[in-house]
Amino acid sequence: MIPLSWYLILAAVLFGIGMFGAISRKNAVAVLISIELMLNAVNVNILAFWHYHSQLLGSTEISGLVFAAVVIIAAAAEVAIGLAIIIAVYRLRKTVVASDLNVLKG
């Protein structure tokens, strides 16, 4: 049987890797991919605690499932819009390197 801490350590490591990717990658699509990694790590965390609470309670604890469902929904919506924006910017500026999109920079 697997202790809760193992799941949380896995989630923390995944989150750290995703954070590294999101901050230090050049390509905008790569940043989105790393954000997806972070959201998945958060989901693992939420569902590990759901299991723990359901085990304590004896029956299903719904709020954990709802939380995880809303995270998945938000991630899907964000990827769709983010990629639409990236493709629109690519059509205009012919680049996807995130640091090249600095028109608003002071």
Binding site: M1, P3, L8, S54, T60, L65, A69
Partner: peptide, 24 residues
């Protein structure tokens, strides 16, 4: 708290999904 072992849950079948659907 964190070091508790997660044992397989006792409810089976559709119970958790039915509760999830009704809660939503």
């Amino acid at each position: 708290v964190i070091n508790t072992i997660l044992i397989p849950l006792e409810f089976q079948g559709q119970e958790s999904i039915i509760a999830f659907g009704e809660g939503l």
